[in-house]
Each structure stands twice: as structure tokens, then as C-alpha cells.
Simulated scan of single mutants.
Amino acid sequence: MAKSKFLAAASHDLRQPMQSLFFVFTALERHVGTDAGQALLERLGQGLGALKDLLDSLLDVSKLDAGAIVPELADVPIGPLIDETAACFAPAAAAKGLRLLRDAACDVAVRSDRTLLGRIIRNLMENAIRYTEAGEVRIRCRPAADGVRVEIADTGIGIPPEHLDRIWEEFHQIGNQERDRSQGLGLGLAIVQRLSRLLGHPVEVHSVPGTGSVFSILLPAASRPLGAETRRTGPAADRAGDASGLGRVALAIDDDAIVLMGLRSMLEDRGYEVLAASSGDEAIAALERSGLTPDIVVTDYRLRNGQVGTDCLLRIQEFLGRKVPGVVLTGETGQDIVSEIVALGFGAAHKPITGAEMRAAIERQMARHAGASASPVPEESRVAEPA
């Protein structure tokens, strides 16, 4: 319990300075003109990416240990999910000269949470490719007594018997005593184990040192047979729209001056006209002075003097008399805050987020509002002006 609380607090407190670094990095990109400078900037980006991966994994572990993740069970077509995973890892396998094989189509549905199940399969795929230097990695789907068994098999280094129980421990890695981060963080299988327990999907491993390993996930059958209504590929519906901000107005709200500067520079690089504010009051004042209506509002969740970003967004909608798309940045670990953000119709983005991820979050939120006519804000959703 103490460890979980520490991980949650540490990952949260590190996210704000990390977010500052990411936005400053994004702002720097257009100012570095030499090849040597670009090479150094690329190395800086790689270092920031490694640190982000560690923080994200720590946050995942702490959220799972705290019971903050609640599965949303549904009938999930397993074939498209396997196809997406194989396509995602095809470049990594090709770079190592590995054959990435996918067995014949698995035309069945299972009962699971699509996002969390996808995370399990991706972590196992990443692990298989990392520890395989020659040969192949294969994803296959087999019928089982009570459902479907998905297997990820490799021809890698294998796992010695004395390590089979320890591979699920945090930061335990075989053959990486020097903690070379290019070999991963040692948290992937720890997250797999927690997710498998949460979903009730047993994960088993069989391995022969020097020959390879097979990880298998036992999935329950769907509540009804696979039909046309369940053949969606999922993420395709959420693909981003137009990436350009030309002719558009963005309102950025953050009480950290460095984060605000980086966010403003990133949006301006995309062509947005940007209004910047450190609070809800400043945001309303900026809208009054400019007479502009924002096409997107990006705000931090925790602001000074007890303000929160969702209240700022509701105040802005009240001031404008219409709904506007909004993205809320948060470093909080609790699912309740994310649920609140989503329930109000806004997008939630966890810190630290890269410039590319931030742009994608903005585009997704704007796409959801595209084509929708302006509508007044219902009285019950309005918030009173602070005394």
C-alpha cells in the first residue's frame, strides 16, 4: 500500500515539469536550423520519450494497484484487434529481420474491455520482439473449451525455469543487469499480470531456454455470436480530422508559465491564432478584449486558487452561449476526474503528453464537434461566477 501511494504521488508530481519539457521541446523544433542542432534535439527527444514511458508505466501500475481502472466489458471481435497489433509491430520486427506471422483469421468475438485487452496483447508482442534476435514472432488464435486462446509465440532467448515466476515482478529483466533502457523498463509483464487479474483473463507462459517462449491469454466467449454489428475495427471511428489550425482560434489556459508558453508556441506552429490565460478569469477577459470565439480550448485541470479546468470550460461556454470543444490536461491518477471530464463532453489527456499526441487529442475533439450546429448551454450545466 505504501509503495502504491508513493508511485502515485511521485508520478503525479513529476508530470508537471515533464509537461513543461515536452512543450518547450516542441517550441524549440522550429528554432533549431543546423544539422548538428537537429541531431542534438533528436537525442533530447529520445531521452524525454524514455522518461515519459517510465512515468506512464509507473502510473499504470499505481492506478491498477489502487483499483482506479474499471473495465468496460463488451463483445469484442478479436480478429481486427490482432490485425491492428500485428500492423503496429510490423516495422519493429522488420528492423530486426524477424518474420512477424499472423495465423488464419480469428473470426470470433470475446467478452472483454477492448482497450485493456489490446494493452495486454501489445505488451506481450513488444516483449516477444525485444527478446527475439532471429527467427519469428507469431500471433495465433485457437478455440478453447470456454472461449478463445490467443497465443504470442517467439523463437527468442527463452526464460530459465528459475525466472518463470519472477518475470511478473516490477523491473525484473533477464540479462539486463546494467539497466539498459533500450531493453525496456521491466514493467510490461507486471502490467500484463495486473490487467489479466482485473479482466479475469488468465495468462500462461511456456518457455524453453534458447528455443523460445509462448505466452497465452484465455478469453471468454462473447455473449452472442459475432455479427455485422460487432465487426467494427474500433479506433477507426476516432481518427483525427484536419491537422491544420489555419483560420482557427485556440484558447490555452495553464497557470505554469513554461507550459503555457510551450503550448502556445505549438498551437501557433499549426497556424492557430492563440489566446493565452493562466486562469478562468483571464480567459474570459481575453475573450472580451478580442471579440474572438475559440474553435478549441486547452486547459490544465488543476489551476490556482482551487480552480479546475472543467469549471473554466463551463464558464467559457456560458460566456459564449454555445458549446465549444475542449481538452483538459491532467496529471491526476484517479479515474473519477477523467470520468468527470468525459461526462461533460470534453477530451482528457494525461500528462506528460508529447506535442504530436497533444495535436492528435485536439484534432479528435474538434472532429467530434465538426458539423454540429452551435447550441446554447443548458441552464443546469452552467456554473455561477465566483464571488
Results as ranks from 00 to 15, higher is better:
K3R: 09
R99T: 08
E42L: 15
D60A: 08
P143S: 06
P91Y: 07
S213H: 03
A374I: 03
A145K: 15
A90V: 02
T211M: 07
Q38K: 15
A356R: 14
P225Y: 14
Q46V: 14
A285V: 15
D180V: 12
A252W: 10
E136N: 05
L44M: 14
W168Y: 09
K5G: 07
V338Y: 15
I284Y: 09
R142T: 10
R30M: 04
G47E: 08
R138F: 00
G200L: 12
L320I: 02
A190V: 04
V110S: 07
R368I: 10
F25R: 02
G334Y: 03
S265D: 14
E170F: 03
V214W: 04
F25C: 01
D256I: 11
Q16M: 00
P209F: 06
G188M: 05
R15Q: 06
E126Y: 14
D56Y: 13
G200N: 08
M266H: 12
D75Y: 06
L185K: 08
A50G: 12
A240P: 15
I316N: 05
A94S: 08
G188D: 14
L51G: 03
Q365M: 14
C88Q: 14
R315Q: 10
D300A: 04
T299E: 01
P220T: 15
L292T: 10
E282T: 06
H163F: 14
P209M: 08
P376R: 10
D146W: 00
D256Q: 13
G186P: 08
G147W: 15
A190I: 07
L100D: 06
S112D: 15
D238Y: 15
I167Y: 08
V383T: 13
V203I: 10
L303V: 02
L59P: 07
L314I: 00
E170W: 02
V76T: 07
I341E: 09
G67S: 03
G200R: 05
G158I: 01
L28R: 05
A349Y: 10
Q38I: 13
